[in-house]
Nucleic acid binder design. Structure first.
Length: 719
DNA sequence: TCCCCCAAAG
């Protein structure tokens, strides 16, 4: 038979009954060899049996079912063979199979040895077999294997996998002998549970005990330094490479590049990157992330475009870069490119895209992502659930946000906070407060952000007394010192409700120097309650803090306009002209069929500009007939009344509404995201549109949502 | 035959 002279039993093994399986690469090949042994009788040799089993258990192409068959034919397997079988199951992370083999082995009277438990413990993977792992630990203690360093290290690793670093530490502390692997297992364990300071501390402890680190140690510690952005420590670890004569390898170089990149040392990172002989996708991705985090998203993109290959992590890193740079449309573009190149996104990618959708108010894309997640069975973990809640509520769809929230099996404080904030900004103040009560009942500790949500719920709902109570409880009961944003909320709450004096008292009693946002909140109250005197105080303070901030002048002029002090309105306008201060241009976004359309006031750049303006003209007539009166009081230009009307007709949100009316179906909700506060007139007009055109219009402005329906707004004209 | 390692999230 020709196969008797196959390459497996030529050079190294002159004896055909003791073949080498070195060149065997596949199960097909192994089965051929197996049949030869059956034919020539070598199959009865225990060494041959063992080698065949070992192939199935250790080779990448190995088949455990086949191993089981071979194993069954072995009359009296020794401990080595049992270990090999257990190892086979551990490679495939099936602790149940590994454990049942172990039980079988004991039943057959074979005693485990030093190798058995490391294999058993290795079969355990995150999420599966923790209880088995504890049972293995029990067996280890019972049979006295707990002084073996390999067993100890495997135990540390197993507990670390489940985030049980307390138990891991106990095992570590009790170790009779510790080697460098024990230390490495502790460091990587702390990394796994994101306790990076602890990881570094273990490394320092290790240095003190004069345990020489290995490349593995340095890689783990560098990873911790990267997460902590601890450049000093990172450099110290870098020095260890020479001090301990550790040979560089790709993983270690990647860890170094990543550490420097994460710490913003892009110069060093680039130099190391250039000096590397071999780079892989991780090296490149570390560079992309580094530039992105340093705010140099265009540099990141250059590296990204040069990458020889990209995986989902690289694509997500690029998306995150655009997110960080507030270039949300480009973030969505990257996602589209990613799909075009057939890379399958995962939960991380989804979170990024959802964040972009949240910023853009891109509900269609967001919905599409939710369907994609469900269809592709992407695990909806807490983070992804939270991102969905945030996306829905920032797109003005609280009902869906609430649905996601209710469906979540696991909720953390971020889930609760996202939902509370979502309800609050969408005008469901009472519901937000109810949810806050539920949160406390569920023993989830609120944080400072939760209180921003709760206080703004009170603000948007005009619940002054509740707000006062919650504000005082925040410190007393929950131990959270109010920060600038909390004071801002309180001033806003009191100011809007007309308690301008109390609002000023809050500012006076602040533990820190009030910033312009706090004064701005007071100013907002002055506009509503037409108090020019207090407004002037607030403006003076704001201009001391930010002399170039044009919106301050705009706000003050709005107050004067509300008080009918037209001379002062003109004075402000002239002052702005002289100082060359411009207001931030208003900008509105609207999503249509997955594309984001952007409008600024007077915009003629849109491809359907002509239709949009003729729709606006039609709207002007139709709405006026229906009783809508333009409100030009907030126009800052020194022009005639008619021109003022023209000016406000071209506000970006009106252009977006007109575009929405002509581009969507007759019943579709129009959703707009505006970068500034809505002006009085746009608000008035949107109410009118919702009635006359029988359309729901949702506008998200800087701080809250306006849900226009049947001629009125969810904010009750109070914003 | 065994144990430890690199890039992305609210």
């Amino acid at each position: 038979m020709a196969s008797l002279t196959s390459p497996t039993n030529t050079t190294n093994s002159p004896d055909p009954t003791f073949p080498s399986l070195e060149n065997c690469q596949s199960m097909t090949h192994l089965k051929q060899i197996h049949s030869q042994f059956i034919i020539n009788g070598a199959i009865n040799n225990p060494v041959v049996q063992t080698r065949l089993i070992a192939f199935c258990c250790t080779h990448n192409a190995g088949d455990m079912d086949y191993a089981r068959g071979l194993f069954a034919a072995v009359p009296d397997p020794n401990v080595y063979v049992w270990n090999t079988m257990i190892r086979g199951h551990s490679r495939r992370n099936s602790p149940i199979n590994a454990a049942s083999l172990y039980v079988e082995m004991l039943e057959k009277g074979v005693k485990p040895d030093d190798y058995t438990f490391p294999f058993l413990l290795k079969s355990i993977a995150p999420g599966i077999g923790f209880n088995l792992g504890r049972e293995f630990h029990g067996q280890i203690l019972k049979l006295g294997f707990d002084s073996n360093v390999f067993v100890q290290n495997a135990l540390i690793h197993m507990y670390a996998l489940f985030g049980e670093m307390g138990v891991a530490r106990q095992v570590f502390d009790k170790c009779s002998k510790r080697d460098v692997v024990s230390w490495n297992a502790m460091i990587s364990g702390y990394n796994k549970v994101k306790r990076f300071e602890e990881a570094v501390r273990v490394f320092v402890e290790m240095e003190r005990e004069r345990i020489g680190p290995t490349a593995v140690t340095l890689v783990s510690v560098l990873s911790a330094c990267a997460k902590l952005k601890d450049l000093e420590m990172g450099k110290r670890v870098h020095l260890c490479v020479e001090d301990y004569d550790i040979e560089l390898n790709l993983i270690l170089e990647n860890a170094l590049v990543d550490m420097y990149a994460a710490c913003g040392e892009m110069g060093v990172a680039v130099e190391m990157f250039r000096n590397m002989n071999v780079r892989d996708v991780i090296t490149w991705t570390a560079m992309v992330t580094g530039f992105a985090n340093a705010g140099q998203v265009d540099q990141a993109r250059e590296y990204f475009d040069e990458m020889p290959e990209r995986d989902k992590v690289s694509w997500t890193a690029m998306t995150d870069g655009y997110l960080r740079a507030s270039r949300f449309k480009e973030a969505l573009d990257v996602f589209r490119e990613m799909q075009a190149s057939n890379i399958r996104p995962d939960g991380y990618t989804m979170v990024s895209i959802l964040r972009a959708c949240a910023h853009l108010g891109a509900l269609e894309v967001g919905e599409w992502i939710r369907c994609y997640i469900d269809k592709n069975k992407i695990r909806r973990d807490v983070v992804l659930g939270n991102a969905l809640i945030d996306m829905y509520s920032k797109c003005g769809n609280v009902e869906s946000a609430r649905k996601i929230f209710e469906q979540m099996v696991q909720k953390d404080k971020f889930s609760w906070t996202a939902m509370i904030v979502g309800l609050a900004v969408n005008g469901h103040g009472e519901e937000a407060l109810d949810l806050f009560t539920d949160m406390l009942e569920a023993s989830i500790a609120p944080d400072d952000v939760t209180f921003i949500g709760v206080l703004s719920a009170c603000t948007h709902g005009g619940m002054v007394e509740k707000g006062r109570r919650i504000f005082s409880k925040m410190t007393i009961r929950h131990g959270i010192e109010p920060n600038m944003a909390h004071y801002g909320c309180m001033v806003d709450l009191l100011g809007r409700a007309g308690h301008l004096k109390e609002a000023q008292e809050v500012i006076q009693n602040m533990a820190m120097k009030p910033n312009s946002i706090v004064w701005g909140a007071l100013l907002g109250g002055c506009r509503i309650h037409k108090n020019a005197e207090v407004a002037e105080i607030a403006v003076k303070k704001m201009l001391e803090l930010e002399p170039e901030n044009g919106s301050v002048y705009v706000l003050l002029s709005n107050v004067y306009a509300a008080c009918n002090r037209w001379k002062d309105v003109h004075k402000i306008r002239d002052l702005m002209m002289v100082k060359g201060i411009k207001k931030i241009p208003g900008c509105s976004l609207i999503e249509m069929n997955g594309a984001i359309h952007e409008f600024v006031a007077g915009d003629v750049s849109h491809s359907q500009s002509a239709q949009i303006y003729s729709k606006l003209e039609e709207m002007a007539q139709v709405l006026k007939v229906a009783g809508y009166q333009p409100d030009t009081s907030e126009v800052l230009l020194d022009i005639g009344e008619e021109e003022k009307e023209t000016a406000i007709y071209q506000h970006s949100e009106k252009l977006a509404i007109a575009f929405g009316l002509i581009s969507s179906g007759p019943k579709a909700t129009i959703r707009i995201v505006k970068n500034l506060r809505m002006c009085n007139d746009c608000h008035r007009m949107a109410k009118s549109v919702s009635r006359v055109y029988n359309r729901e219009v949702i506008v998200r402005d800087r701080t809250r949502f306006h849900h226009f329906r049947h001629g009125s707004c969810s904010c009750k004209d109070y914003w």
